[in-house]
């Protein structure tokens, strides 16, 4: 199978280029894209990418495969290859450090902006803070985010204003804390989100939902935030 990989080494390349590798699938098995990258790295050890858990929970190996963002380790070749070809590129919209490795600083910064931690001004009790199963259920579909950046780097609004629009991942997390019955900073959190960029640059095109490897729905979370802002204002 022909795999083309985006290559760029800042020390020696003036511009990025694409390198094609011919990879034989062992026993004709359907490998994950990460397995194929590992085979390529055996051929050429200079190919660089991030990876770790290889089971879709650490969020290291978000890449763009034939135009669609996803985690290399849980994407079977058969799902993304077209006519026996696969092109692997770094996540779009972020600066490339080398090959498939992008600089995720902007992404992490937008996460930090939403105060991604529980705020509760009351003294904690001796034991846990009680929370009903129904209250807890509101966090399902939110806390599972692995910060892989597949969603935010598939979002044009994030491409245009990565420093101002928080992006789907950060907003999913923002709602995760707004929805937590143990958090008391709702007012402060909402006040930080009502400007024209942070939330409202979302135009609801749902690219984020389309690519999320964990099946989460940031657009819905953003809708919830909008409703909360609306309720607060009227």
């Amino acid at each position: 199978m022909e795999i083309s990989v985006y290559r760029y080494d800042p020390e020696k390349d003036k511009a990025p280029y694409t390198q094609a590798f011919e990879v034989d699938m062992p026993d004709g098995r359907d490998l994950m894209v990460l397995d194929v990258l590992e085979l390529i790295k055996e051929i050429d050890p200079t190919v660089s990418y991030r990876r770790s858990c290889r089971e879709g929970v650490c969020g290291s190996d978000g890449v763009n495969m034939n135009g669609k963002n996803g985690l290399a380790c849980i994407t079977p070749i058969s799902d993304v290859a077209k006519r026996g070809k696969l092109s692997i590129k770094p996540l779009p919209g972020l600066p490339v450090i080398r090959d498939l490795v992008v600089d995720m600083e902007q992404f992490y910064d937008s996460y930090k902006k939403i105060q991604p931690y529980l705020i509760n001004k009351d003294m904690p009790p001796e034991q846990e803070r009680l929370q009903s199963p129904e209250e807890r259920e509101k966090l399902d579909g939110l806390y599972e985010c692995i910060l892989c950046a597949c969603c935010s780097t598939a979002c044009p609004s994030f491409w245009w204003n990565p420093d101002k629009f928080i992006g789907p991942s950060g907003l999913l997390q923002a709602y995760r804390f707004l929805a937590d019955s143990r958090d008391t900073a709702t007012e402060e959190r909402l006040a930080n989100l009502e400007d024209p960029f942070s939330v409202f640059r979302c135009r609801g095109i749902m690219n984020c939902v389309n690519v999320c490897p964990k099946g989460l729905n940031p657009t819905r979370a953003i809708g919830h935030i909008r409703n909360m802002l609306l309720k607060r204002a009227v």
Partner: peptide, 9 residues
């Protein structure tokens, strides 16, 4: 408006 919500509305 300097406010995304009012722009939105």
């Amino acid at each position: 408006s300097r406010n995304g919500l009012s722009d939105f509305i």
